[in-house]
Simulated scan of single mutants.
Amino acid sequence: MQLPLQLPLQLLNPLKLVTGLGLAAFVSLSSLSGCAVAQPAKPTVVILATGGTIAGAGASAVNSATYAAAKVPVDKLLAGLPELASVANVRGEQVFQIASESFTNDNLVKLGKRVSALVKQPDVDGIVVTHGTDTLEETAYFLNLVVRTSKPIVVVGSMRPGTALSADGALNLFDAVSVAASKDAGGKGVLVTMNDEINSGRDVVKLVNIKTEAFKSQWGPLGMIVEGNNYWFRAPVKRHTAQSEFNIDDFDVLPAVEIVYGYGNMPRSAVDLFGNAGVKALIHAGTGNGSVADRNVAALQEVRAKGIQVIRSSRVPAGFVLRNAEQPDDKYDWVVAHDLNPQKARILAAVALTRGVDSKELQRIFWQY
């Protein structure tokens, strides 16, 4: 029998066949001989949908900033992105259908418990949470604190509705599923994937309200996603998820923690109001290095004397609050929020106070988380 011209005597040497013809030809020949190469099983990713812009719709394609959020259910989101099937076995659940500015503590707890239940299932490899961007950073940080797992959890949103020209939601969601399906994303805490970047759910904040590159961390992204591939550059060092001392399975209600915002001419009335409202902690979003106006120092001391924790944060979007600078925190028995902005400081304080910690323990927690 004469060999075909395109397959010369290399057929007599399997090694030369692979190197000479390439893997595709080898696989094809293997299939012809009854030795098909088995494909690895795809990971399973569950998408928990909560609403937001990623599920929004505008009146026309030019409406990128004027639209109705939380209109598209998760099944339609998935149906519009068939490319997800090439990455993972994906299924969706509609947990909420709300704009994220309306998120409550009860919503956080319900979502956290559902994520915790799913990651315990051996057939679930990763979780994606679709979320509105207004409070996305708070939810990501909450999950980072209370879900005990090393499996990837990714929170994702979009700045433009899916009906807009150059909508960012589809690629953001594809990237989120790619990250949640990848083994190398495990053990890095809760992640946020938007605008091709992978950020820590602890660090990331919404800095711009009109651009697709809205979310940034002052410490930089953990990595990037390019065509479904992860490229990592750093890892988080603060405690999170599997290493956390907190567990969503241990509580059902978050204690009341409120924020007062510092500004020029700020009266003490807001401090007094919350001090008499039954809160367990009060975050002071101070100017500069968490500065407190002279007229409010006494007000916050009175709040602390009632057993309410006082936590100095800053309204400045970057940097961190130094203990015993600007105010004698040791003397007043106050806590500093370190580099956490006021809204994230509220989340951490509420979670920590589910365990009834004192001020020294609370400060230790703010250093470590």
Results as ranks from 00 to 15, higher is better:
Ala79Arg: 11
Thr104Gly: 14
Gln94Glu: 12
Gln94Arg: 13
Lys110Glu: 14
Phe96Trp: 06
Ser102Lys: 12
Thr104Leu: 15
Glu93Arg: 08
Asn105Tyr: 11
Leu84Trp: 04
Asp106Leu: 14
Pro82Gly: 06
Leu81Cys: 14
Leu111Gly: 02
Val74Gln: 00
Leu84Cys: 04
Asn107Ser: 08
Arg91Glu: 15
Lys76Ser: 09
Phe103Trp: 10
Glu101Met: 15
Phe96Ser: 01
Lys110Ser: 09
Asn89Trp: 10
Val90Ser: 03
Pro82Gln: 03
Gly80Arg: 02
Leu81Asp: 09
Asp106Gln: 15
Asn107Thr: 03
Glu93His: 11
Leu111Ala: 06
Leu111Ile: 11
Ile98Gln: 06
Gly112Val: 03
Gly112Leu: 06
Ala79Met: 10
Lys76Asp: 12
Arg114Asn: 05
Val87Ile: 15
Glu83Asn: 08
Leu84Phe: 05
Ala85Asp: 08
Val74His: 03
Phe96Arg: 06
Asp75Trp: 07
Gly112Glu: 04
Lys110Phe: 09
Ser86Pro: 00
Ala79Asn: 13
Leu81Thr: 14
Glu101Phe: 14
Asp75Met: 05
Val74Phe: 04
Ala85Tyr: 04
Gln97Met: 15
Leu77Met: 12
Phe103Pro: 00
Arg114Ser: 08
Arg91Lys: 15
Leu108Tyr: 15
Glu93Tyr: 10
Val109Gln: 05
Ile98Leu: 15
Ser86Val: 00
Val109Phe: 11
Val87Glu: 09
